[in-house]
Design a binder for these strands. Structure first.
Lengths: 90, 90
DNA sequence: ATTAAATGTTGCAAGAATACAACATTATGT
DNA sequence: ACATAATGTTGTATTCTTGCAACATTTAAT
């Protein structure tokens, strides 16, 4: 299978919470260098690790990992504010 | 890292759409035996493969994969119906 | 009942993810 | 400027994922 690179927001989320890689790694239960590999997108996390990270940040997996490059977090923030109150369910 | 087993709904979703493993595998671009491994939960898919499957079924990844065992699909269906119209955003 | 399709099982090979160590570079605080 | 923390780099070993082949069992259709 031609493995695609999955993009992620680990680095920004980590900095947003003022954590070092060592701290984040400790909290999640992986080697701190593994966090580095993921932030640099040297390789994709396993599905289990992706879930662990999403659980740690208390964010849906799709908000942290994506098959396409992410826009800056701030853009998403703005979009969320703009859409506030819109309930277009169907 | 002590890898957890991730549960999935691939088998039910596949049957729901009347696909054989060969067909599903072909559509996604993996070996048909790989679908079998995943359905039996012999191992977890890579994050990329999980995304491919979620894209194929046009369902959010968390609806197909979970760190905890799934209730039957029908239960979720009922819950969705019950919650219809509830917009508790904040 | 027979056949064909679908699924399960085992085993081996290749590739990807993770751990870990040692060392280099960059940032931060004083 | 110095010390320390944080991050990056390279390399090796182990485990997990995927592909693939061969064969067994189950299911479905006729």
């Amino acid at each position: 299978m031609e493995t695609r690179k999955i993009y992620n927001r680990i680095a920004i989320l980590r900095r947003d919470r003022n954590l070092s890689r060592v701290e984040l790694a400790g909290a999640i239960g992986v080697n701190f260098q593994t966090i580095g590999y993921l932030e640099r997108q040297d390789y994709n996390p396993s599905l289990d690790l992706a879930f662990k990270i999403s659980e740690y940040f208390e964010l849906p997996l799709e908000l942290i990992f994506s098959t396409e490059a992410f826009a800056p977090l701030s853009a998403d923030l703005l979009k969320a504010k703009t859409t506030k109150g819109d309930h277009n369910d169907e």
